[in-house]
Design a protein around this nucleic acid. Structure first.
Lengths: 236, 236
DNA sequence: GTCTGTGAACCACTTCACAGCG
DNA sequence: CGCTGTGAAGTGGTTCACAGAC
């Protein structure tokens, strides 16, 4: 399945990930990190982990980890710690990773092609099932067994193939149009790599990743590395 | 230069980006967005912009934009707004984009190759001057005119070629080793795409981008899209 | 009148510190 | 005795609302 790959042999070790609907955004952001650290621990054969250890592996404060997990409604044995396999399964459940997501990538320039071939997606339960572009020079191309289709076929594919996440890797100028296509077709989760702000209706979740922005933030720190004010750089 | 490309003809329109050293992290994160929006406005020939308009273009509250800019020490004419070209130049100065940065990418799998060819980097003043990998099958390969070198040559290249930003696009298992090489060679800014937490000494800035994490956060929202609680999804 | 700059209130998240369970 | 779970305190960031410049 998606998560541990190791651990003991029970399928659903903990109770059902019940009422974990309105977690703080900051907590949600950390859950994938916890999950990754737990997978890594599980592969090392470790069965139990303390909040202190797991927090160190994810770069957070142990109290925050405990608070996150308790808000989430889960586990932990006092005096002992957390069961690695059970906790991983629980978090995976909260994140909705029990059922694989179906992803379309729109825009297959260099970045889009790299995303299409990035093994980390399928490894973690995200099936890339559709590739779309507007450039006739790219349409028809085969990327690791998936053929790039014309973007005009996007809406039909979303419906017919159960696509529920759209990844926009087009130039900025095309991004809003693609977002509109996705939203009209019923997609409510979008990951945007284009350098622009997308307008979407309420209820549609958009996350934005701008690689150049990250470099510019580093540039800022680099530029102001004069005095010994080297604190507060992490987690900026 | 790095930023507007358009606008009026004065080179250094505003005063020197003086004492903007210890800005709040949240502000620094937004500066590149402001800059991008300003570039876009400048290309449209717009010379002046109100905080309201610029805030809308970047998806933030106008009061926050004004506060950011005033903290930064800059500009603004009451009753009128901000001079687009001057403000862009000012922000570029604060971010340290007046001098181009020299970037090395380590790890040239699919993602690293895409990053090496991503035009957005050079467009915004980041010169990719070094590509390094440990795989003999990749070393020697030419990517858009840059030859991939053996990672053992990294330290020397950092010193000889003035590399000041390292981008790690290796598998997780190799990332810490590469980070150590970079730090030992004197690099103090690292952008990490590997799915792991890096340990670095104080004074070294690390930013982490994990593409799968972004999808997992979307998965969470997708999974909990039951009730009409569609607020607070943006900016999570 | 318009739009900036900013004190004050508000809110969210983080850290501390410790009570309580195993 | 160790480690979780959590109230309480602290911190940082956002929004409000308005005084003041143009």
């Amino acid at each position: 399945m998606t998560t541990t790959g190791e651990g003991t042999d029970h399928r659903a070790p903990s109770g059902p990930p019940a009422a974990a609907a309105d977690l703080p955004a900051a907590t949600v952001r950390r859950l994938p990190e916890y999950l990754r650290a737990l997978s890594s621990l599980g592969e090392s054969g470790i069965e139990t982990v303390s909040s202190e250890t797991l927090a160190a592996a994810t770069g957070v404060n142990s109290a925050m980890l405990r608070k996150d997990l308790s808000q989430l409604g889960a586990s932990g044995m006092r005096g002992v710690g957390y069961n690695v396999a059970a906790l991983a399964a629980y978090i995976a459940g909260v994140l909705g990773l029990t059922k694989d997501s179906r992803v379309a990538i729109i825009g297959l320039g260099h970045l889009g092609q790299a995303l299409a071939r990035y093994p980390g997606f399928s490894e973690r339960g995200f099936d890339i099932v559709g590739l779309f572009d507007a450039d006739p020079g790219i349409i028809g191309k085969d990327l690791d067994g998936i053929r790039v289709r014309d973007v005009t076929l996007l809406a039909g594919a979303v419906r017919d193939e159960g696509i529920n996440i759209g990844v926009i890797a087009t130039p900025g100028a095309a991004a809003q149009h693609v977002a509109d296509l996705l939203v009209d077709a019923g997609v409510t989760s979008i990951l945007n790599f284009a350098p622009c702000v997308l307008a979407v209706p309420q209820g549609v979740a958009v996350r934005k990743v701008d690689l150049a922005v990250e470099l510019q933030i580093l540039s800022f720190h680099e530029h102001h590395k004069t005095i010994g004010r080297a604190n507060a750089i992490e987690r900026s």
